[in-house]
Computed example of a mutant assay.
Amino acid sequence: MAVFTTVSPDEIASWLLDYNLGEMRDLRGIASGIENSNFFLTMEQDGSTREYVLTIFERLTFEQLPYYLHLMAHLASHGISVPAPVPGRDGEILRTLKGKPATIVTRLPGSSQLAPGAEHCAEVGGMLARMHLAGQSYPRQQPNLRSLPWWWQTEAEILPFLDAGQRALLQQELVHQTAFFDSADYAALPGGPCHCDLFRDNALFEDDHAGHYRLGGFFDFYFAGNDKWLFDLAVTVNDWCIDLASGTLDHARAQALLRAYHAVRPLGDIESQRWRDMLRAGALRFWISRLWDFYLPREADMLQPHDPTHFERILRRRIEAAAVPWT
């Protein structure tokens, strides 16, 4: 959520005339993330203030965005705690700002839990399963745009920056994942709308100041797409349930998340058999994207590209592990 497109308060105030949200009291750029320009927006109406998130989309198109925005609206209407897109006076939730697509969504309560314990992971697992089930009735279709075809496309761009060992790992894993994706087992895996990027910083927890945290919700759905639910689960486990320094899975956290998920949506035999393959797929996806962002960056205020070696370590650990945690 870096700031690629700068806007002045006067520009935003004029743009907000198309909404019925009152008067703007504050506008602050959000530094985290690397895809879109994001701002916290504070509005005052009838004597009370409320906070929103304004997003200007830098890569996604007007044609792609309805899938994400209406998915968020669908999930919110089905009791899943996610940001809800705010319609303008004309009922539209997608508008143009400085020549780019833009939207406003409600801001969720809480803050990110960047050092999660098993209890946090269990809450995430349960809500992720509920989100998957709620998404079954979502009628729009769009594939995960950062899946296997994108991995192959991006390989040619990042390969010149890698050493011999990294190139070998990347190419061997792409071949492995292509065979997996072409298999009957992969075709049999259940799926539907997925978040596809449910990292620790894309969920919020509320602190009750008595040593307990309540999951406030998931946000940043702009990598979402129709995919296998097991992929969404693998991406989540690869971030929430690891030792950050080594990339090794933490069995207690992984089992807490998986068991909570399984209690809501029972996991099948093929999902169990292909779990390691999907953990590797999740690691490969983010290793490739972080290599791309790191070596081929875009200019942006507050841009902080992530270290790609983090997911290289995770991928190597998933390949080398004698066993991986399951339910």
Rank of each mutant, 00 (worst) to 15 (best):
A187P: 05
P101G: 03
T103Y: 09
R140F: 09
E58V: 04
H74D: 09
A179V: 14
T178D: 08
L174M: 03
L114E: 13
L159S: 15
G79Y: 14
P149L: 08
L162E: 00
V105M: 02
F180L: 05
R140K: 13
R146E: 06
G135M: 10
R107K: 13
E119G: 03
G191N: 11
H78Q: 11
L174A: 06
R59M: 11
A76F: 03
P109L: 02
E157Y: 04
L170T: 12
D163H: 06
A118N: 04
T55N: 11
H120C: 00
R95V: 04
L108F: 00
H132F: 12
P143T: 09
Q171S: 12
L174Y: 03
A118L: 02
I158E: 00
L128Q: 00
L189I: 13
L169H: 08
T61S: 15
W150H: 13
P116S: 13
N144H: 12
Q113E: 12
A129K: 05
A179E: 15
L97H: 07
E123L: 00
P139Y: 10
Y186S: 02
A73K: 11
M127C: 07
G110A: 03
A188P: 05
Q141C: 06
L65F: 10
P193D: 09
G110F: 02
S137N: 14
Q153G: 07
R89W: 01
E63T: 14
L170W: 06
V82D: 02
S81V: 10
L69C: 01
